[in-house]
Computed example of a mutant assay.
Amino acid sequence: MRPGELIASDRGARSGAPDDLARAWSVLGAVMDPEVPVVSVVDLGIVRGLDWQDGHLHVVVTPTYSGCPATEVIEQDIEQALEGAGFAAPKLERRLNPAWTTDWISNDGRERLRAYGIAPPAGSTSKRSLMGDSGDVCCPQCGSAHTELLSQFGSTACKALYRCIDCREPFDYFKCI
């Protein structure tokens, strides 16, 4: 290495412009979850923060759970989207504490889940839900609250399988966690 030559991790380092963070949030709003491709990583609440550190965009990502098989794909998609938008060598930090919760899903994300045929989390992860005080799981097809649990495990570990008693359609329910 010669004097004045940048080390590889410094390539592309720059000061953040005033509108860079808003632009980065916008870019991330278009990065879809690979398992539920109608909700973005922002709507799911897994992007927990953006800031500038050492001349690079720093992105804090909290996966939906520590063993989520899509975590690496999501991180690659985030990195590619940001690099494609001109953010050189963004730095991603996987943060497991505090743990992700369905309370972090945006209202838009909940509506997109419903429109896609997945019942969004009912209620919240508050202590009241531990005492059985959770909301009704409504059918995303017909809106009925007359539903029944078929299996605690749906198409992915974070979903349960329900059936609507009125329209008889089975559907995934995004569990409160």
Rank of each mutant, 00 (worst) to 15 (best):
C68A: 00
C68V: 05
L82S: 10
N107T: 14
E72G: 15
A81Y: 09
L92Q: 03
I74P: 01
G86P: 05
L113V: 06
D103M: 02
I105Y: 04
N107H: 13
R94E: 07
P90A: 07
E111A: 06
V73F: 13
S106W: 00
L96G: 03
K91H: 14
E79D: 14
L92I: 15
L113T: 02
R94I: 12
R94L: 12
P69I: 10
C68E: 11
L92G: 02
I78F: 03
W100V: 00
A81D: 03
P98D: 11
F87I: 09
W100H: 00
G86I: 08
R110C: 06
G84R: 06
L92H: 07
E75C: 15
F87K: 06
W100Q: 02
W100R: 05
A85C: 12
I78R: 12
S106K: 05
C68K: 05
Q80D: 15
E111N: 09
I78S: 03
E83H: 11
R112E: 14
E75L: 14
I74V: 15
T102W: 03
E111S: 08
K91A: 13
F87Y: 11
C68N: 04
G86T: 12
V73C: 10
I78K: 11
E93H: 13
R112A: 14
E83P: 01
D77F: 09
V73Y: 12
E111I: 01
W100Y: 03
F87H: 08
R94D: 06
A85V: 10
R110E: 06
D103K: 01
R112K: 02
A70S: 06
L113M: 05
A89E: 13
R112Q: 01
